[in-house]
Computed example of a mutant assay.
Amino acid sequence: MTGPKLFACVSVFANCAAGSQLKVGHELESSTIEIQAVSMKLGANDVVLIDTPGFDDTSRSQAEILQLIAEFLRRTYSEDKLLTGIIYLHDISSNRIAQSDLGSYRLFRKLCGDAAMTNVVIATTMWDDVDQQLGANRLQELQDDFFKDAYDRGVPIMRHDNTRQSAHRILSRLLGKDGTRCDIQYEMVDEGKSVENTAAGKELLHQFDEFEDTHGKQLRAAQDSLEPIPSRNGLRDGSGGTEEGADVRELRIALEQVRQELRRVQDERDKLRQTLGQDLTAHIKRLMLCICPI
């Protein structure tokens, strides 16, 4: 493979490494989803850092993010451009692993597959926001539990202190590796699968199933609780009707929130089955010309 060495990361890391000013998650318009790239030199090597949105980006749906990343990876693989490295960030200051963290990592693992993990570095961030001993304890816990499968495969879990020197040290760890093929690239190009039928797509659908099962139970429980409450807790208004108490109103609000979340997940399912829009497809084509000029 000729040309620059390609690294996938998020914009925060890319900006730190290259001194660039790529837009960061919340700075993008809510209706905008895109992949950005910046070129830099690392020693004698030409490097391109590709900002791939994280699955925990709350401003965009997971289905849209997976569709975009999958299409970009499909095109790079089709043009014989492989990733030299993938940087996965984890906030060391978090005092617990949230369900969203677990879901994001599961998606990441399915997207990469086992073979591509040899080209991954897990970089821990936000060390300034945590006591150093506590951070060291959490790092050990990550190696022993949350990231154990990756760590046992030789994936380094490194400290990133938000300096350019630190970012370059992490990139250098992967610089000498051969380019790697992610599972989702093989599935889409060599096996001709749609995104929803890849391992990553199935994982996301499985997470939707889990979400709907949990919130569906909450919805049914709330509906069952709602029926008898007005007669027990309601107050008579001036017309002889029943005025809802505060607990009933709160329950109705909670009920509507659950319904909205279930509608959101259904919308995500629909998006996963759709093909990428023309605007985003054109955006990826332009990006390919920038990072891999003919």
Score class of each variant (00 low, 15 high):
residue 60 R to L: 07
residue 123 A to M: 10
residue 203 E to F: 01
residue 206 H to L: 09
residue 183 D to A: 13
residue 133 Q to Y: 09
residue 96 R to Q: 12
residue 83 L to S: 00
residue 128 D to K: 14
residue 227 E to I: 11
residue 26 H to T: 07
residue 67 Q to K: 14
residue 215 H to K: 14
residue 167 A to E: 04
residue 150 A to R: 01
residue 28 L to H: 04
residue 249 R to L: 14
residue 191 E to N: 08
residue 169 R to S: 15
residue 252 R to L: 06
residue 83 L to N: 02
residue 259 R to M: 06
residue 60 R to T: 10
residue 92 I to S: 02
residue 53 P to V: 07
residue 68 L to G: 02
residue 103 G to K: 14
residue 256 E to C: 03
residue 54 G to D: 09
residue 53 P to N: 10
residue 137 N to H: 08
residue 195 V to N: 04
residue 52 T to S: 09
residue 159 R to N: 08
residue 282 A to H: 13
residue 252 R to Y: 01
residue 135 G to K: 07
residue 91 D to S: 09
residue 255 L to N: 02
residue 266 Q to N: 14
residue 245 G to E: 10
residue 240 G to F: 05
residue 230 P to W: 06
residue 218 Q to F: 08
residue 38 V to P: 00
residue 15 N to C: 03
residue 150 A to F: 05
residue 111 L to C: 14
residue 150 A to H: 04
residue 122 I to K: 06
residue 263 R to Q: 13
residue 17 A to H: 00
residue 174 L to P: 01
residue 250 E to T: 09
residue 58 T to M: 10
residue 288 M to N: 09
residue 118 T to H: 13
residue 146 F to Y: 13
residue 243 E to M: 10
residue 159 R to L: 13
residue 132 Q to C: 10
residue 246 A to F: 07
residue 167 A to N: 03
residue 174 L to N: 02
residue 99 Q to L: 11
residue 87 I to D: 03
residue 5 K to H: 11
residue 69 I to P: 01
residue 161 D to I: 15
residue 93 S to P: 01
residue 4 P to R: 02
residue 110 K to M: 15
residue 179 G to F: 02
residue 156 P to F: 07
residue 153 R to T: 06
residue 92 I to H: 07
residue 163 T to V: 07
residue 79 E to W: 03
residue 24 V to C: 01
residue 223 Q to Y: 04
residue 7 F to T: 02
residue 81 K to N: 12
residue 273 R to M: 14
residue 226 L to H: 08
residue 213 D to N: 11
residue 178 D to E: 15
residue 135 G to A: 15
residue 58 T to L: 12
residue 155 V to S: 09
residue 28 L to F: 02
residue 94 S to P: 00
residue 201 G to D: 04
residue 264 R to A: 12
residue 86 I to F: 14
residue 221 A to H: 05
residue 21 Q to I: 00
residue 102 L to H: 13
residue 272 L to H: 05
residue 254 A to Q: 12
residue 152 D to K: 13
residue 277 G to C: 15
residue 154 G to Y: 09
residue 245 G to L: 03
residue 58 T to P: 12
residue 271 K to C: 07
residue 1 M to T: 10
residue 104 S to P: 10
residue 243 E to Q: 14
residue 17 A to C: 02
residue 114 D to Y: 13
residue 178 D to F: 01
residue 96 R to Y: 12
residue 259 R to K: 15
residue 163 T to Y: 09
residue 171 L to Q: 08
residue 141 E to T: 13
residue 82 L to W: 01
residue 235 L to N: 12
residue 86 I to D: 02
residue 138 R to W: 09
residue 183 D to W: 05
residue 202 K to H: 05
residue 269 R to F: 07
residue 292 C to Q: 05
residue 31 S to Y: 06
residue 205 L to P: 08
residue 276 L to E: 07
residue 162 N to V: 01
residue 33 I to E: 02
residue 206 H to P: 00
residue 38 V to R: 00
residue 92 I to F: 08
residue 183 D to I: 06
residue 98 A to S: 15
residue 39 S to L: 01
residue 171 L to P: 06
residue 27 E to P: 00
residue 41 K to W: 04
residue 239 S to C: 05
residue 56 D to F: 10
